[in-house]
Design a protein around this nucleic acid. Structure first.
Lengths: 121, 121
DNA sequence: CCGTATCCACCATGATACTG
DNA sequence: CAGTATCATGGTGGATACGG
């Protein structure tokens, strides 16, 4: 949970589910760009934490509907508040990055292996 | 930024800085468990996003003080609300995990390499 | 349709040593 | 004290194939 807390897929998933219960593939389409595997992992994680309820409708094509539990709904509020802040301030942040000439990704912090290591003593 | 948004170190760092401007090593002690490298990266990232201000006091032992910018302070509110939610509900989540017998980590989802892959075709 | 199993590439993080 | 440089490693997420 804590690991996935700030994960964008988790935020997106909860943002979708807070609107209404949704089926797997619809969720996948709505979120967009998430792999099936990742959506499954995210949902299983949320389910394991008791934030999401998984309901299987016994129909000929399998239908599985996901919804937020009360606990999940209580999380949605602060989580989406954070998401809203990010959306609102993303422009300001990017403007700042451009001013200081820093790329929006942490490439400058990436490791650069340039020569052989020396022996550690 | 978005990458570090939900990062626990980022949350911890902002939680410390929202109280008062703090120096590097004091920050490191207060947060606890963070490596020097990671704290530096977190602060640089926040600084690059315009959320944290870095101020060098020209003194004999180098003194660098970090503080939140107004933008950073505006982030602190929703971010700490989220942190508070986690603290408040961590118990409920762990209880749920124990009930369903799932370990708190995603070990069950970890990759298991058991045999050679077959040729991809 | 709704998943699980498997493999892999990448990068985030920790540890350590070094600098000023 | 505050930070940078360097390397090893483990976890995260993608892709794909398969199963019910």
């Amino acid at each position: 949970m804590l690991g996935r807390m700030g994960d964008k897929w988790t935020i997106m998933t909860i943002a979708m589910l807070v609107q209404r219960p949704t089926r797997f593939n619809e969720l996948k389409r709505m979120i967009g760009g998430i792999s099936q595997q990742m959506l499954t992992r995210t949902l299983r994680s949320l389910e394991g934490d008791g934030l999401v309820l998984r309901k299987v409708h016994p129909s000929v094509p399998p239908q599985v509907e996901y919804s937020l539990t009360p606990l999940g709904q209580s999380l949605a509020q602060p989580l989406l508040a954070l998401g809203t802040w990010v959306m609102d301030n993303m422009g300001a942040i990017q403007s700042h990055r451009e001013q200081i000439g820093t790329p929006p990704v942490d490439e400058n912090l990436a490791q650069g292996v340039r020569h052989r290591p020396r022996q550690r003593g």
